[in-house]
């Protein structure tokens, strides 16, 4: 065990494999959780038929998707059409490498962990666009174009909001930011931190293509956006990576703003991290099933007229706070 942990190659390999397996298993049951919650919000029951409380529904869905024929449209760019789903899930899962789950449970403690997470989160628009373009379908392409426009706009306030905990903690390492919060209080407890957290969560919803920012998908106008032509396992991979991205974003919010694995009552730190991530994911899901979709111009106005100036102001306040503190 110690040999595995001390050798960086083995550590990365073992930890990566475990992390990906756990996350993918989690994602399956998170679809169940979301469907149950959505059902309750809309006064219905959600899945009930397969297994106790419908718990085996995700497995049934996955088996069904795998049995189906993966159809590639005749005029599609075959290679890119094949490439887009695995690329999407790879980018979504890559972000998980820098999330600290406890003092030692961490795949890679990078000096530039926050930047790494933001880089892969921002790149997620890339395979989505490739899917839209390769499909050779006008709705898919329109969805892909919207995804890129939205992604590159919302990346700016997102990076700036993440800069607030970075400035306060004085480090770009995720573990370093959590350790700062263990020592001097959670970032959400300060006014500037709370505002930045809210701003980060908002931009993360837009980056992850979630309601109320799911304009690229917009099923009432674009069928299903970039995934219009995908069926069977290809579509399932897109759906899974959307959930994986949501969960990982919730974990990043917990680590940057909610104190990460810090907690009370001597409970294991891992449990605290999972609980906080679950809480943030609950909020995200709640928002999804309560709000309506924005229009394109509202989306851009919100970003450039409110979020970007607001984020700049927060960075300024955090900078002043740090320089006063000395």
């Amino acid at each position: 065990m110690t040999f595995v942990l001390s050798n960086p190659w083995l550590h990365g390999l073992v930890f990566g494999a475990v992390l990906v397996s756990v996350l993918m298993a989690l994602v399956a049951f998170i679809t169940w959780f979301e469907r149950k919650l959505a059902g309750r919000i809309q006064s219905r029951l959600g899945p009930t038929m397969v297994g106790p409380f419908g718990l085996l529904q995700p497995i049934a869905d996955a088996v069904k998707a795998m049995q189906k024929d993966f159809i590639v449209p005749k005029d599609a760019d075959r290679f890119l059409f094949w490439l887009a789903p695995p690329l999407t899930i790879a980018f979504a899962l890559a972000t998980a490498a820098v999330i600290p789950f406890s003092k030692d449970v961490l795949a890679a403690n990078l000096d530039v962990g926050v930047l790494y997470a933001l880089a892969f989160s921002g790149l997620l628009a890339f395979p989505t666009w490739v899917a839209g373009w390769a499909s050779n379908n006008k709705y898919a392409l329109l969805g892909g174009m919207r995804m890129v426009a939205q992604g590159i706009s919302y990346e700016i306030p997102m990076v700036m909001a993440a800069l607030v905990p970075v400035t306060l903690a004085g480090t770009l390492s995720m573990q370093g930011i959590v350790e700062y919060q263990v020592a001097s209080g959670w970032i959400i407890a300060t006014p500037v931190g709370a505002a930045a957290g809210l701003l980060f969560l908002t931009t993360a919803l837009a980056e992850g293509n979630r309601i109320p920012f799911d304009i690229p998908e917009a099923e009432s106008e674009l069928v299903a956006g970039p995934t219009t032509e995908y069926n069977a396992i290809g579509w399932s991979i897109f759906a899974a990576s959307e959930y994986a991205h949501s969960v990982i974003t919730a974990a990043i919010v917990s680590a940057l703003f909610l104190g990460g694995w810090d907690g009370w009552w001597n409970l294991p730190p891992l449990l605290w991290m999972v609980a906080k991530t679950g809480f943030v994911f609950l909020i995200v899901t709640w928002v999804r099933w309560s709000l309506l979709r924005f229009r394109s111009d509202q989306l851009m106005a919100l970003c450039w007229k409110y979020l970007v100036p607001g984020a700049l102001l927060l960075v300024l306040i955090a900078g002043i706070q740090v320089s006063v503190r000395g």
């Binding site: 990078l110 000096d111 530039v112 930047l115 790494y116 933001l118 880089a119 892969f120 921002g122 790149l123 628009a125 890339f126 666009w129 373009w133 392409l141 174009m145 890129v148 992604g151 590159i152 990346e155 990076v159 770009l172």
Partner: peptide, 24 residues
């Protein structure tokens, strides 16, 4: 140079997205 690598991904590889729009 980890910092440079992260910035390379964010700015350059991310910037390719914009180029793709021109491509279309």
């Amino acid at each position: 140079a980890h910092f440079l690598a992260a910035i390379q991904i964010i700015l350059y590889t991310g910037g390719v997205l914009t180029l793709m729009l021109f491509g279309v």
